[in-house]
């Protein structure tokens, strides 16, 4: 409510207790290599989509882990599944499968919600 000419600012903090991390857990179970990601960003540097549109696979992976799912859901379909990210990953994360699983999980959640 803008009663006094300003609105009360919202907390920027990631509230770990409040967030749901079931999507990250679902992916970790099906694709355990997701767990060894160290956020080096090699995937994002090589990503065609990321170089021309505001899309960072590195950012989406960390947001998934923290349960900040909204941004991931809104952006994950921008990936064209070319597989270059998986090719360059030094930790051997199957990023391509992580993306597919994330899409699947979001769809299932939407279905379940319906």
């Amino acid at each position: 409510m803008d009663k006094f000419g300003f609105a009360i600012s919202q907390q920027r903090q990631i509230d770990f207790e409040a967030n749901r991390r079931d999507i990250a857990e679902y992916i970790s179970e099906k694709e355990p290599s997701f767990r060894v990601c160290i956020e080096c960003g090699c995937c994002a540097a090589t990503c065609t989509t990321g170089n021309f549109t505001p899309f960072s696979l590195r950012e989406l992976l960390i947001l998934l882990k923290r349960g900040e799912n909204d941004k991931v859901r809104d952006n994950i379909n921008k990936c064209m599944l070319c597989g270059k990210c998986t090719l360059v990953c030094p930790r051997g994360v199957n990023t391509r499968n992580v993306i597919s699983l994330a899409r699947e999980a979001f769809q299932d959640r939407i279905k379940n919600a319906v």
Partner: peptide, 12 residues
Amino acid sequence: EDTLAGRPLKME
């Protein structure tokens, strides 16, 4: 600060 997410984080 979750430096990789670029945001402060609070955890119990």
